[in-house]
Structures are given as structure tokens and as C-alpha cells.
Design a protein around this nucleic acid. Structure first.
Lengths: 213, 213
DNA sequence: GTCGACATGTTAATAAAATCACATCAAAAA
DNA sequence: TTTTTGATGTGATTTTATTAACATGTCGAC
């Protein structure tokens, strides 16, 4: 399914719509209104309708949107038909958090491998995911056709890991390290830094506080 | 220090500038050019200059920006003069990751407490941070004047935790749960969902792949 | 039947963020 | 001195994202 140039924010929200819809889907409730979706995610109904417009989905004027149909359509758009395989590099607390959190979420994404350098972790299975030594990374990535890598190693090591992932043919990287990475244009890179988020919250909390005082 | 209405994105970058600058600060290197900062963070020099303009900082036309001065100025803007105290609710893998990650980062933010319900964790210290039972939360938050809460509990419990934090007088919340929260306007709320991020990477990786094929 | 209530779908307007384009200036080089 | 180089600072523009406004359509009530 092709929709040209879906905005980044819309893609994020589609993922959230789907999850919210999966939660409320039931025998009794087969349809949902834009304002209901909006309320669940604390956004406006217009935003929801606009997003659905962008993916070309039409609801029923009186009943709202068919939940099941909508879930399926979102899947057709954001999932890859053949599924995508994911690996976590760095099985520290954050890597583990990701894996546990991921587990059980049904999805076209499957968590295939973890990598670390700690001998105690290597060749063991964490939450269903086997852990290998980092120098097996290229081999395992290629063999299993893993296309997405999540980097949760200490930041100094992030650049070499990224390079190794790219050389192994990865298509997308999610970097949780504060070290900004350099990747070629054909690899999609998303970065998230927890400390920055915290400082942002601190800043706006302070500001809010002054404003409401 | 007051600058009216700094854009969200600028605040995020200021946090990153500061960290990058702290890394390169040394006796030999006292000044930095906008294009150097830009290169470190993979953004454009104009973006950097624009951000610095917004906080009213002027560089030297020939030498660039005084690193030390800039670090200090950013501190004056994004830090709270009296410091802010932070607590993590939920000492699972993610909560631990946050604490370890946070440790040692010098800053006006101090991690004061963790909360959990697991008896094995309660009344023990993790990475310098004491862990209490969740029903002590209001008490500890108030006593220690904690103004920022990070939520890393399982998502079902997130709403009640958020409510409890708000009632205890928290000023900002960072929610790592996929459950969108409801808080009054005087509390700043930032939400981040790892699964959504991953799905986003998956989507754009797929798209990129098609485009470059 | 027709009217009112209430959703959807979409164009237009606005706001937020990033980028372009260039005036300006200081120092080194000619 | 004068010119060239290479940086900053910022108005103007473009791009991205959100919100407003409203035309349209369907069902139930009367």
C-alpha cells in the first residue's frame, strides 16, 4: 500500500491509533468516532480525521470508523508485508527494557537478536531473545536478514556499532545514545536522548510553575 | 534569566549544545564556531546561530563563540537556579536504565528517589538512589520537594501514579508508558513511547529502502 | 416528509520550525 | 591601504504541522 509522503507525525500517530484501537476492539464495539480516538490520545478529533484522510480511509457518517478495517489498513500502510526483523545492540538495562516491553506486542516486527560484550550474557536467552557477542554482529544480521537495529550501548561505542550495522546491511537505526550518529542517506536514523528529554521537562516545568504562580 | 517563549525544539537543542560543549571544553580550545557545533550534532550552522540568537548570545566574529560563556548562559536559561529534584516511579529495567544513565551527569537536576512495589527493591539503594514503596510516594515527594517525576511503571498503573504525583505537587512528568496521561495544565507533561518510535523507524526504513532500490 | 442533531471530509488559515539569502564586519593577505 | 576571506546575525521565505471553518450527508424525531 502506497501513500505518498506521509508526514512523520502522522506516522507516529497511526502507530498509536492502531494500538489504542486494538485495546478497545471487542464484539460489542465495532465502530469508533474520531472524537473517541482523539480522547484516548489527548489530541483533537480534527487531527484524527486529517490523518485518516491522508491514508485514504473513509468512515461511516453515522457510525464512525470500522475499528477492524482501520486496524488492518494501518497495518497495510506502516507494516512491511514480509515483516521486519529487529536486533538490540547492548543488553544493559535499556536494552532489556526494550525487549521486555516489546514482547507480546503482536506485530510484523520481530525481535531476533541481542548483542553484548559481557560474557555472562552471551549465548543466553533474555525474554525469548538470544544474545550474541558483538563481533558476531555482521554475520547474524546478514544471516537473519535483520533490517532494524536499536543501539543501547555506552555512547563511546555507538559510532562503531552504527558503522558495523550499516555495513551489515541494516535499513533503519534507533539510537538511544546521546552521541549523534552519521549514517548514509539510505539508512533511516532516529535518535532519542533521555537526558535531553528530562532537561526539557525540567525547563518547561519551571516555566509553567512561574506562569501559574 | 528570562527569554520569552523559547521554541520546544530550541530548548532540546540547547540541552544538546551544552553537553557537546562540555565534552570539547579544554585549555587549548576556548572558542567554537557555529559550523563546528552543527557538525557535532548533524544539524546546520544556521540552526545553531538562530538558536543562539534566540537566547541573545553573540559570538566573536573571528573566533566564534566562547565555550565557557555559552555553557554558562545555557545553564542560566534552562536550569532552575535552585535546582530541581527528580524521582523515578518504577524501578524496572527502564527505571534503572534512566538512573544509571543519569548518574555522574553534573547538572542542576538531582535524582532523589525511586519507587516500586517489589519488596526486594524497597529500602535498598540502586546506583546511589534509594527506593521506596509506592505508597510512600506522596510523603517522600513532598518532604524532598521533588518537582519532576519519571514514570516507568507498567502502563495500566500509569494513570494512578500520575494522579498521585500531581496531588503531591509535582511540576513536570516524563511518561515512558504507552498510556496517554491526563494532567492539569499547570503540570508539564512529556510522553515518549518506544514502540511508536520503533514502528516509525520500521516505516521509514521500509520506505527508504524502496526509494533507493 | 422535513427538520434538527451530529458526524465526516476537506479547504483554507494559522502556527511552528527550518532554511535561504545576504548585510555586516574583523582580521589576514596582498 | 585596500582587498579578500570567512565568520556572525537576521529578515524573508519555505516547509511542516496544527487548527479553524464549513459543506455535506445520514439518521431519528416529530
Amino acid at each position: 500500500m502506497f501513500i505518498k509522503n506521509l508526514p512523520h507525525k502522522t506516522v507516529e500517530r497511526l502507530s498509536q491509533y492502531r494500538r489504542a484501537l486494538l485495546m478497545i476492539l471487542s464484539k460489542e464495539k465495532t465502530h469508533v468516532f474520531s472524537h473517541e480516538i482523539a480522547q484516548m490520545l489527548h489530541i483533537t478529533p480534527v487531527q484524527v480525521r486529517r490523518d485518516l484522510m491522508l491514508i485514504g480511509y473513509s468512515g461511516n457518517l453515522r457510525k464512525g470508523y470500522d475499528i477492524k478495517e482501520l486496524i488492518e489498513l494501518i497495518g497495510k500502510i506502516i507494516d512491511s508485508e514480509r515483516g521486519q526483523r529487529v536486533a538490540v545492540v547492548g543488553l544493559g538495562n535499556l536494552g532489556k527494557a526494550f525487549i521486555s516491553y516489546f514482547k507480546g506486542k503482536r506485530s510484523k516486527l520481530s525481535m531476533i537478536a541481542a548483542f553484548d560484550i559481557n560474557p555472562e550474557k552471551i549465548n543466553r536467552v533474555f525474554d525469548g531473545v538470544p544474545c550474541y557477542h558483538i563481533n558476531q554482529l555482521p554475520e547474524i544480521i546478514k544471516q537473519n536478514n535483520i533490517s532494524i537495529g536499536i543501539i543501547t550501548v555506552p555512547s563511546e561505542q555507538a559510532p562503531e556499532i552504527a558503522e558495523s550495522l550499516v555495513l551489515s546491511g541494516i535499513k533503519g537505526i534507533l539510537n538511544y545514545t546521546p552521541k549523534p550518529l552519521n549514517v548514509p542517506a539510505y539508512v533511516y536514523l532516529e535518535e532519542y536522548d533521555m537526558i535531553t528529554s528530562l532537561e526539557k521537562v525540567a525547563f518547561f516545568a519551571k516555566k509553567n510553575d512561574e506562569r501559574f504562580k
